[in-house]
Design a protein around this nucleic acid. Structure first.
Lengths: 191, 191
DNA sequence: CCCAACCCTTAAACTACATTAAGGGTATTT
DNA sequence: AAATACCCTTAATGTAGTTTAAGGGTTGGG
């Protein structure tokens, strides 16, 4: 809970009254490795804040292959925003890669908080703007770089993740097969 | 100007006082075909609302090829959000594909408006959430579908654009060459 | 009205990446 | 401690999409 307040603090400090409104409307949970907090076909019920651990969000294609859309580690938010707001079934999965601790807010509670703590509109606007920029770079890179360039960018941009994630997960994020990532790594190590 | 108010109205109505604050801080402009409102190396100075016409936003790779990240037609917002907020040079271009009419807000004015019309935090939070969801689908599709499937999705999702855009621009958006799009179209027409 | 710039298509040769298969290593679970 | 599931790599073969080149059609600016 402290961690969430500290997180908001970095955007705009909350006053005591606001903290009191917030507290009863969030819920802390522990999640096991490989446990899913969202599955395809279900509505995304929560905005999830990662206190400790790491998650992946992915879709599954016709052939059953997983494609990682994003990772979320300490201090990140994760949710299928489309499903959350529309209350329609999601086509995505969110799964813990490590044993994790999270804080969750349900839709009704978040809407209540948006009304009673207008600051939160501002805070989440900025949070989502930042995520949007990240995602936009990802699209540009996907279409304008080779897999090797994308791998190198990944290493630069997410150094804290590269040692925590198996290469299969990184390959899925880069949009390539683990076999091809292996080839890229071999190539790079020869240079 | 009316068009912008109508646009905001669809999220939350503005009261008269708020409209009065808004009006002197936005600027209407006409833009010619092929005119750029953002160029690589320059800071993105404005949030741009498209009243009439159509724009593309793209990056240029090492080899000089353009890669379209998004289109913006009537009722859409377009800006390099990262550059706009950080005031760092953009790596993107925004260019009119058709003669267009736009309404622009400068950074300082938008910040003033955010402070004096808190509703706008809410409105732009929702606008960006929607754009985020769109972009997320794009990432998922890019990694999990063939070019043909992506082309068919594009036709479904943006029927109003397919007749307005040259195929070269659509190909660039799909992440393929015009030659290959031509092949896909030929294939589809035989079915 | 003409010239230049853009646009669409076809086809042959090429390349980045996928698929399949297989072997050995290392964690997790029982 | 064994068994199982997971992970990394190598290599041969296959394919979606690129590159290069070329011809013809359309648009728009001077």
């Amino acid at each position: 809970m402290e961690r969430l307040l500290t997180h908001f603090q970095r955007y705009i400090p909350l006053i005591e009254d606001e903290k009191r409104l917030l507290e009863p409307r969030v819920r802390a949970r522990k999640i096991k490795r490989r446990q899913m907090i969202l599955q395809e076909g279900f509505v995304c019920k929560h905005y999830t804040f990662v206190v400790e651990g790491c998650f992946k969000m992915y879709g599954v294609d016709d052939k059953g292959y997983e494609h990682n859309i994003q990772f979320a580690a300490e201090g990140d938010w994760i949710a299928d925003i489309g499903s959350f707001h529309s209350q329609k079934p999601s086509r995505l999965f969110i799964e813990a890669i490590e044993p994790s601790e999270i804080i969750q807010i349900e839709q009704q509670d978040l809407y209540f908080l948006y009304i009673n703590i207008p600051k939160l509109d501002r805070i989440f606007k900025v949070i989502i703007e930042n995520k949007f920029v990240e995602l936009q770079n990802r699209v540009l890179q996907a279409f304008s770089s080779t897999a090797e360039q994308r791998y190198l960018s990944f290493l630069e941009q997410y150094p804290h993740l590269t040692n925590r994630l198996p290469n299969t997960q990184i390959a899925s994020y880069l949009g390539i097969t683990p076999e091809f990532l292996s080839k890229i790594r071999k190539n790079l190590s020869r240079k």
